[in-house]
Each structure stands twice: as structure tokens, then as C-alpha cells.
Design a protein around this nucleic acid. Sequence first.
RNA 1: GGCGCGUUGGCGGAGAAGUUACGCAGAGGUCUGCAAAACCUUUUAGACGGGUGCGAGUCCCGUACGCGCCUCCA
Length: 460
Amino acid sequence: MKLHNTLTRQTEEFKPHEAGKVKLYTCGPTVYDYPTIGNLRSFVFDDTLRRALQVAGYEVAHVMNITDVGHLVSDEDEGEDKLEAGAGREQKSVKEISQRYAQAFFEDVKALNILAPNAYRGPHGSYAYATDFIDEQIELVNQLMGKDYAYKTASAIYFDISKLSDYGKLSGQKLSDKEVAARSEVVNDPAKRNPQDFALWFFTVGRFKNHTLRWRSPWGEGFPGWHLECSAIVHATLGEPIDIHTGGVDHIGTHHTNEIAQTEAAFGVKLANYWLHNEHLMVDGQKMSKSKRNFYTLKDVIGKGYEPMALRLLFLQSHYRTQANFTWEVLDAAKDHLQNLRAWADLKHQQKPVVGLVDIRPAKGAIFTDLNTPKALAELASHKESPSQEVLELIDKLLGLHLADRPNITSDEKELIIKREEAREQKDWTGADNYRAQLAKKGIDIKDTETGPIWSRISS
RNA sequence: GGCGCGUUGGCGGAGAAGUUACGCAGAGGUCUGCAAAACCUUUUAGACGGGUGCGAGUCCCGUACGCGCCUCCA
């Protein structure tokens, strides 16, 4: 399998640290609002990677975190914690907010047939919540303090990036070339040694005086900085080095760079051998983001009458490393494409499957070449033969489109098809059209072919 | 200022130095009770300027434009 590694900027042959096994970590959502379909694209990408690795025969240990503390917002809510801001906005407790939106995330993920992480079980199921790893995060800060990579100011514990010679190796950007405070709303602590030093632990003083989520630490009461949780969770669940770390391209320069700094400074080991980053989903040519409020959610998509699977197919139609532009027109095309794939899958109930006729090795090969799902879909489209159940199951394992579990029609529905055929033989066109209308009501479309009628389910 | 990505036909979107991507949509035809399908034919490409090749969407160098990141983001 070939994968594009951000560390080397090359598409490389993937070799796991331990033969046959893959440790995979994904930065999960911050649960302060509904996920946008842009967020969901990245989780579908992640899922595609997981599925490809599994089909390739690897035993995949997958961990995903849920950020329920410490993620700072900006803009008008300057300097606040996203969770705290959400709670204030909705007059709810921070816990209520995180539970509610985590639940919304789980529903979306299920609707899109995204596999749940499988390498961790905790109080909240298979997802690793940041607040369930507070002790581990404090211990990580402790290590960094002990090794002199971190220092304390009146407002926070910071990581001193000048102690690492290769800080920024992931983004390839030199520190001296970075514009300081590129975003105007960045709050700057004058006690910081370097402008790019980032907080490991915030004290509940000053602007965070009223922060509700707080824990005792050896240095003072407070809460963890955002980057800390991923390093601590990886250390506690998978152990370094992990094979693959995934996330959006926006994380390269800061979040992932800081994760690497924390882990490699504290433990002296490489955090991850491969870094895979997905490009953003655009809407009207602009990045879809919560702060710009130009986003859609899965609820919006469903509300307009589209199935989640159509959205999944839309994501798979573009390569994960290209920016994709979302429009309703494109979703319409994906919806029709999905219907055609389903009609193809439905053939298995009607024509005698010819084993080996549908060769999906080219499609599999495309996915194994840096997850080229658009090419894989093109390879599948060349097949009009009736697919076997085995073939459909393999396609589902790779693409998760639910093509293999489509039910047969009922005997009543079969009866209607037979009656329609009888009517047609009698040249009773009114009767035949009547039966077709009845079938259409049940969501079944009929196409007459030389070898007899072929049905397909329009929905579900 | 720095780092990164991109520019392909009506829309989406791949591969790739020398014959069709593919999907969705459009046109004409065969077929057909009708509809659809199928089959045949067909329209619309490769930002711009140079360079290297017998030959370039495909490699190299520029230019332009777009997008992202540089302590909110997937």
C-alpha cells in the first residue's frame, strides 16, 4: 500500500512498525456544536484509510479522541474555551453541551457508516475523551517540566519551542519566517519566552477565572491546553511510535507540530511514522468553517431529502488530498450515481451471479495507491455484469456504501412483476401500467430488457 | 513576508509523454405498447508564456489567478 506522508511530502510504500499491525490515531471533533459536512469529510477519509488497511490484511488499532475541554475559541468570543462558550450560549452546563454534541457526532458517524474506533474502551465507550485523561496530561506536563522543556508563568505552563532543534519539521516552515500573531485576536502573554510557545496547562486566573472545568495540578488549578490531550492519549492507549496519525491540513502547522514537540520531548521517541492530512471541503469556493458560519450539517443534507450515503459517495468521488467544492448540484449527481450503483447491486437477486466475472482488483489497487477512491469508483463503473455477494461485500469493506446488504423484494412484489408481465403479454397496457404504478409506490422501478424485467429499489 | 495546495470538457473528477478515464447532465439514432434500460453515434477539455522531446494536459522554468495555513478549525 502506498500512502502520502506529510513528513516527507512523498507518496511512500507503507511499512508498519510491527509487521501486520497498524496503530492509527485520529484527531476527533471538539464537541461544542454540530459537525459540519466538512468535518465529516475528514472522518470519511479516515474511515477509508482504516478500511483499506483492514482489507490489506492489517490488524488495525484505531483510537480517536473527543475534545471536551481546553479548545480555545477566538473571534468575538476571544480567548474563551469553545465548550464554555457553547455552554454560555445555550445556558447549559459544559458537560451537557459536550454530551449533546458528542451524541450528535456519533449519530452522524453512524449514518455515514464510519467505523467506530476499536483500540480503547473507557467510561464513554470506544472514544477517548480528553477529560478522561487529565491525570495522564498532568503527568506529561510533569515530564516536560522535569526535562526543562516547559516553564511556568503567572497564567500558564508553556512549552519552550526553542529547546527543540527540529520544531516545525512537519510544516517545513522556519520559525523565523512565521508571522507572529497572524491572527489579530491571538492573546499574547508577555511572559512567554518565544512567541510560538504554546500552553500545556492554563491556570484558572485572569480571563479564565470563571472557567468551570478545572482540575488540581502540581502547579496550580487549571485545565489542559488543547494539544496536550492527543499526546497523552496516544501515550496511554497505543504507545509510541504509532504508524499513522491523521487529521485535516489545518492541523499541520500548529496542532500536529505541537503534538510532535510534546511527545518527542517528553518521551524521546518518534510520535508517528506517517502523517496523513486531508484537504478541506469548500463551499462556494471558501473553506467551510464554523467561525465563518458558511457550513452545512448532515441535518441540512437530510432535511433537503438526501441520504447520508449520497454524501459519503460525494466525498469518495474526490481524492482526499484535493480541495473539494460542495454544491447541491454535485450532491444531486452523487445521488443519481448512488442509485445506479444500487441498481447494479440489486442485480444479484435477479441474475445468476457469475463468480469471478466482476474483477475488483483494479478498484482495490486504486485504493491501495494513496486511497484513490475516485479511480476506484471509475473502475467499478466499468462493470455492468451482475456482481456476486462476495464482490459486493468486499466493495463495502472498502467503501462502506452499503451495497451488500440490500434486501430482495418480497413475494408480493414479485407477484406484481409477474402480473405485469402477464398483462403485457395480453397487450393489456392499462393493466400493465397499473402494476408498474403499484410497484413504484413501493419504491421499485422496473426496466424491461430482452431477457425480462429488471427491478431496482429507488430508496433505501 | 513565509509554508503548502490547486487551475482539465456544462458540472464533478482521475490516470497519464504517443488510441475512450469515469460519474452526472446534453444531442441524434436503433430498439420499444409506453417509460426506462441497453446498444450505436455525437457535442463540450486541459489557465497563460516559454523550454526539453520525433511527440506534452502529462516533464522543466516562468507568469497569472484561486484556495488554505502561519497559537479557532477536519
